[in-house]
């Protein structure tokens, strides 16, 4: 299996309130189609690591390679375009745009990418919602949906541009057992069937232990497996 993400010697400091080293020379690789869980206590640096990997946080030293491209030193605009095309995100608190329908939320990143016409994008978005079993709620305002429903819409949005890597920051953190299981199954299927890579940060030990591989973080370092 080819390597899709390679992090080498990632070092990051928090400058406020006082200088503090969050990540201490973190290095690891993720293979295509892998379902990876990052676990660790609060403050272990696992979320920070995820945001570094996601290209949202560029304030670090070390090297980050995704799809064989070295992303250090890219402009914010270039990174945004890269995220748009190759990365999908699922966050703990859903983070849908409340003024838009579920369907429109899913469509937005694809409209931004502009690879397909609006009609095609709409059809693809409906397909993704169908995959999440959310097709009946497509035209509802996202703020009117329940937490579990919102999270499924968020996953559909993460998938819309067929990204290589889907990153989740506590994607089940706010969900009950049933909804957590649904999200897990979806992720598992994406990894196995579509060979999309899943990287999630989670507290949920059941969720983590069921994934392909676990990285445990402590004090800014990866614990030996």
């Amino acid at each position: 299996m080819e390597t899709v993400l390679k992090a080498t010697n990632i070092v990051k400091y928090f400058k406020e309130p006082e200088a503090f080293q969050v990540l201490k020379h973190v290095s690891f690789e993720v293979k295509k189609g892998e379902f990876l869980s990052v676990v660790g206590k609060s403050g272990s640096g696992k979320s920070t690591l995820l945001y570094v990997l996601s290209t949202l946080d560029t304030d670090f030293t070390g090297s980050l390679e995704i799809r064989g491209e070295k992303l250090n030193g890219w402009s914010q605009n270039a990174l945004a375009a890269f995220r748009n095309e190759h990365l999908g995100f699922v966050f703990q608190f859903h983070y849908l745009l409340p003024e838009f329908t579920a369907l429109k939320n899913v469509m937005l990143p694809a409209l931004k990418l502009g690879r397909y016409s609006e009609e095609e994008v709409e059809e693809r978005a409906m397909n993704k919602l169908r995959m999440m079993d959310m097709q009946d709620f497509a035209l509802k305002l996202s703020s009117k949906l329940s937490g579990g429903q919102q999270q499924r819409v968020a996953v559909a949005r993460a998938l819309i541009n067929d990204p290589d890597i889907i990153m989740g920051d506590e994607p089940t953190g706010n969900l009950d057992k049933t909804n957590s299981q649904i999200i897990f199954d979806i992720f598992n299927r994406l990894a196995k069937e579509n060979h999309q890579t899943i990287i999630t940060v989670t507290h949920d030990t059941d969720f983590a232990s069921a994934s392909d591989r676990i990285i445990e973080m402590q004090d800014g370092q990866i614990l030996a497996k």
Partner: peptide, 16 residues
């Protein structure tokens, strides 16, 4: 703020 953050995370650029 939240909406802006999510738009940026999903690939919208500053100028968008």
């Amino acid at each position: 703020m939240k909406d802006i953050a999510i738009l940026k995370a999903t690939g919208f650029q500053g100028k968008d």
